[in-house]
Simulated assay, not measured.
Amino acid sequence: MRAHTARLVDDRILIETQDIPLPEPGPGQLLVRVHAAGLNRGELLSLRQQPPGEPVVLGIEAAGEVVRAGADARPFRAGDRVMGRCRAAFADYALLDAHDAMAVPERLSWPQAAALPIAAMVVYDMLIAQGRLAAGEWLLITGISSGVGVTALQLAKTLGARVIGTSGSARKLAALERLGLDAGLHTRAPDFHEAVMAATGGRGADLIVDIAGGSIFGECLRSLAFEGRLAAVGALDGVREARLDLAALHARRLMIFGVSSKGYGPEQRRRIVQGVVDRILPLYASGRLTPAIDRTYPFDELQDAIARMESNEQLGKIVAGEA
């Protein structure tokens, strides 16, 4: 079967195709014929931290049809349409652990299904499981035009929240107004505190999702309401350290939490997946929500998909696979 790998050469990510043996599903695993896979900025950032020239398998989420199920892979069986987190997703076939797999809602296409797993799990974790976002509250999303950012906007509106978003693109902010964005702040700098306070009537944001990174951490903290929550999700700016104002943390009873699945074991991942199945997928199954896809590329044009992501022109998710 074919599998796509990437290597860093002269600061450029180059895609290569290899022929590798077809994997066999072990206990609790599903062998899936991949129809589409989502591209995630985090794996590109990780690739740029690897030694130049070292090949790295690509893809951490996929959607496809179960070809063969290993022992104890219930409730899935051959022929089922599934999506989920996995390794080496940009290949003809991939292995999914059954506890990471979710049934694809009937109305979703393969690219739409591939756009959901990572974003849906992250958004469930930061808005519902940890963030406890409630109707009427204010949510601020920094770097809102990313796949996770747009998914967070969509879900927050179904929860009855009001949403502020920051972006370096006025065009993207205008487009997101159609998805319910209440206030768009055209900035990438740590200069939005006054605008957030003005939009919220002096209250501040009840929950902030910081996708941008450490360069604006202090401004996020300043922009929180009393008993506000700050979700540290990404670091698009590459800044992974920031000063913490302990006086503000204490006096305003703030909460800061991280959102990452890196330290998760199977039981923790199973719990997040079940939360997505129970709380988020019904919104897509009913048509109330539709995955926001920027572009879909054929697998053979994965190089172009990466160039699109690194150009920062995307609005929503970039996917590779079948139409």
Results as ranks from 00 to 15, higher is better:
residue 95 L to K: 06
residue 95 L to C: 09
residue 96 L to V: 08
residue 96 L to P: 14
residue 97 D to W: 13
residue 97 D to A: 11
residue 98 A to L: 14
residue 98 A to T: 15
residue 99 H to P: 07
residue 100 D to N: 14
residue 101 A to T: 11
residue 103 A to S: 12
residue 103 A to F: 12
residue 104 V to C: 00
residue 104 V to G: 00
residue 106 E to Y: 02
residue 108 L to Q: 04
residue 109 S to F: 09
residue 109 S to H: 07
residue 110 W to S: 02
residue 110 W to A: 11
residue 111 P to K: 00
residue 112 Q to G: 08
residue 112 Q to E: 15
residue 113 A to R: 09
residue 113 A to K: 12
residue 114 A to C: 11
residue 114 A to V: 07
residue 114 A to I: 04
residue 114 A to M: 11
residue 115 A to V: 12
residue 115 A to E: 03
residue 116 L to Y: 08
residue 116 L to A: 09
residue 116 L to I: 07
residue 116 L to T: 07
residue 116 L to C: 06
residue 117 P to W: 08
residue 119 A to R: 00
residue 120 A to S: 03
residue 120 A to K: 04
residue 121 M to R: 01
residue 121 M to H: 01
residue 121 M to V: 02
residue 122 V to S: 09
residue 122 V to M: 04
residue 123 V to A: 07
residue 123 V to N: 06
residue 126 M to T: 14
residue 126 M to A: 10
residue 126 M to V: 14
residue 127 L to C: 13
residue 127 L to E: 15
residue 128 I to L: 10
residue 129 A to C: 02
residue 129 A to S: 11
residue 129 A to W: 08
residue 129 A to K: 06
residue 130 Q to D: 07
residue 130 Q to C: 01
residue 130 Q to T: 01
residue 131 G to Q: 08
residue 131 G to R: 05
residue 131 G to P: 10
residue 132 R to L: 06
residue 132 R to A: 08
residue 132 R to H: 14
residue 133 L to Q: 13
residue 133 L to Y: 11
residue 134 A to H: 12
residue 134 A to C: 10
residue 135 A to W: 06
residue 135 A to K: 02
residue 135 A to Q: 10
residue 137 E to P: 07
residue 138 W to I: 06
residue 139 L to A: 02
residue 139 L to C: 01
residue 139 L to E: 08
residue 140 L to Q: 08
residue 140 L to H: 12
residue 140 L to S: 04
residue 141 I to E: 00
residue 141 I to H: 07
residue 142 T to F: 04
residue 142 T to G: 04
residue 142 T to H: 10
residue 142 T to S: 10
residue 142 T to M: 05
residue 143 G to V: 10
residue 143 G to E: 15
residue 143 G to C: 04
residue 143 G to Y: 11
residue 143 G to P: 12
residue 144 I to T: 08
residue 144 I to E: 14
residue 145 S to H: 13
residue 145 S to Y: 11
residue 145 S to M: 12
residue 146 S to A: 07
residue 146 S to Q: 10
residue 146 S to T: 15
residue 146 S to C: 07
residue 147 G to I: 02
residue 147 G to R: 08
residue 148 V to F: 03
residue 149 G to M: 07
residue 150 V to A: 04
residue 150 V to M: 06
residue 151 T to A: 01
residue 151 T to I: 00
residue 152 A to V: 02
residue 153 L to V: 06
residue 154 Q to I: 08
residue 154 Q to H: 03
residue 155 L to V: 08
residue 155 L to Y: 05
residue 155 L to F: 02
residue 155 L to T: 01
residue 158 T to G: 01
residue 159 L to E: 14
residue 159 L to M: 09
residue 159 L to H: 11
residue 160 G to F: 13
residue 160 G to S: 11
residue 160 G to Q: 10
residue 161 A to W: 12
residue 161 A to T: 14
residue 161 A to E: 14
residue 161 A to D: 13
residue 162 R to N: 13
residue 163 V to I: 15
residue 163 V to W: 14
residue 165 G to M: 10
residue 165 G to Y: 11
residue 166 T to H: 11
residue 167 S to H: 01
residue 167 S to D: 08
residue 168 G to A: 06
residue 168 G to E: 04
residue 168 G to R: 14
residue 169 S to W: 09
residue 169 S to K: 01
residue 170 A to I: 03
residue 170 A to V: 02
residue 170 A to G: 05
residue 171 R to P: 00
residue 172 K to H: 12
residue 173 L to W: 09
